[in-house]
Simulated assay, not measured.
Amino acid sequence: MTMVTLSVASRDAVSRRFADAMNGEKQGAHISFASPDLIWQVLTAKRWALLKTMTGAGPMLIRALARGVGRDVKAVHADVTALLSQGILDREEDGRIVFPYEGIHVDFHLHAA
């Protein structure tokens, strides 16, 4: 199963993971955010629903995705564009969009203020 980890990580942590990968250490797929607030800003409830629908589904047209989540095509297009700009979704050569993972793991710690 191809799993992606969504996490909160500092720039230093991301740089260390990159350096380790360059040294041949397997890192797995990661999408990192600078803060928990940024995760929730990018991954709104409606965008999370899109990811849930797309997980393991392969490439799809935006219209089919909109039908799958029961939303307006224009609104789904706006959310897909936001997820594409953040590097969370990919666009195939034929224009279909894909979330190329079969599972999602979310990993971050909440500390006392």
Score class of each variant (00 low, 15 high):
Val80Ala: 07
Gly28Tyr: 11
Arg67Gln: 15
Ala66Trp: 09
Ile62Met: 04
Val8Gly: 08
Ser35Tyr: 02
Val42Gly: 03
Asp72His: 11
Leu83Thr: 12
Leu51Ala: 05
Leu84Asp: 14
Val98Ala: 05
Leu51Lys: 08
Lys74His: 12
Ile62Arg: 02
Lys46Thr: 13
Thr5His: 00
Pro59Ile: 09
Ser10Asp: 05
Ala78Asp: 10
Val4Pro: 01
Arg17Glu: 01
Leu43Cys: 06
Leu84Ile: 14
Gly87Asp: 07
Ala45Lys: 03
Val69Pro: 05
Gly103Trp: 01
Arg17Met: 07
Glu92Gly: 11
Ala49Asn: 10
Asp94Thr: 00
Pro100Leu: 03
Leu110Thr: 14
Met3Asp: 10
Gly24Pro: 02
Glu25Lys: 10
Arg67Leu: 14
Ala78Arg: 13
Tyr101Ser: 05
Val98Pro: 04
Leu89Pro: 05
Ala113Ile: 05
Phe108Ile: 02
Asp72Gly: 05
Glu102Asn: 14
Glu102Pro: 03
Gly70Gln: 13
Gly24Gln: 06
Thr55Glu: 09
Asp37Met: 03
Val80Tyr: 04
Trp48Ile: 08
Asp79Pro: 04
Met54Gly: 02
Val80Phe: 03
Lys52Ile: 08
Val14Thr: 10
Asp79Cys: 07
Arg71Ser: 15
Val106Gln: 10
Thr81Phe: 02
Arg47Cys: 12
Glu25Gly: 00
Arg17Gly: 04
Ala66Gly: 10
Ala112Ser: 12
Ala112Leu: 11
Pro59Asp: 03
Ala57Arg: 10
Arg17Leu: 07
Leu110Asn: 10
Tyr101Val: 02
Asn23Asp: 01
Val4Asp: 00
Thr55Ala: 01
Ala13Tyr: 03
Arg63Leu: 11
Arg91Glu: 14
Lys26Tyr: 09
Asp72Arg: 11
Leu43Tyr: 03
His111Glu: 13
Gly58Arg: 07
Lys26Gly: 11
Ala82Asn: 15
Tyr101Gly: 00
Ala78Leu: 07
Gly103Leu: 06
Gly24Asn: 07
Leu50Lys: 02
His105Asp: 06
Ser85Ile: 06
Ala113Gln: 06
Arg11Thr: 14
Ala19Gln: 13
Ile97Glu: 00
Leu61Cys: 03
Leu38Phe: 09
Asp12Asn: 09
Gly68Asp: 08
Ala34Pro: 12
His105Pro: 02
Val106Phe: 00
His105Trp: 10
Val4Cys: 01
Ala82Glu: 15
His77Phe: 01
Val14Trp: 00
Phe33Gly: 06
Pro100Tyr: 04
Val106Glu: 03
Val73Asn: 07
Val76His: 12
Phe33Asn: 11
Asn23Ser: 05
Leu51Val: 08
Lys46Ser: 15
Ala66Tyr: 09
Thr5Met: 11
Arg67Gly: 11
Thr55Met: 04
Ala29Arg: 06
Asp94Leu: 00
Ala66Glu: 05
Arg96Pro: 05
Ala49Trp: 09
Asp37Gln: 09
Ile104Leu: 08
Arg63Phe: 11
Leu43Met: 01
Asp20Tyr: 06
Trp40Pro: 08
Ile88Phe: 12
Ala19Asn: 13
Trp48Glu: 09
Val98Trp: 04
Gln86Tyr: 15
Ala21Lys: 04
His105Leu: 00
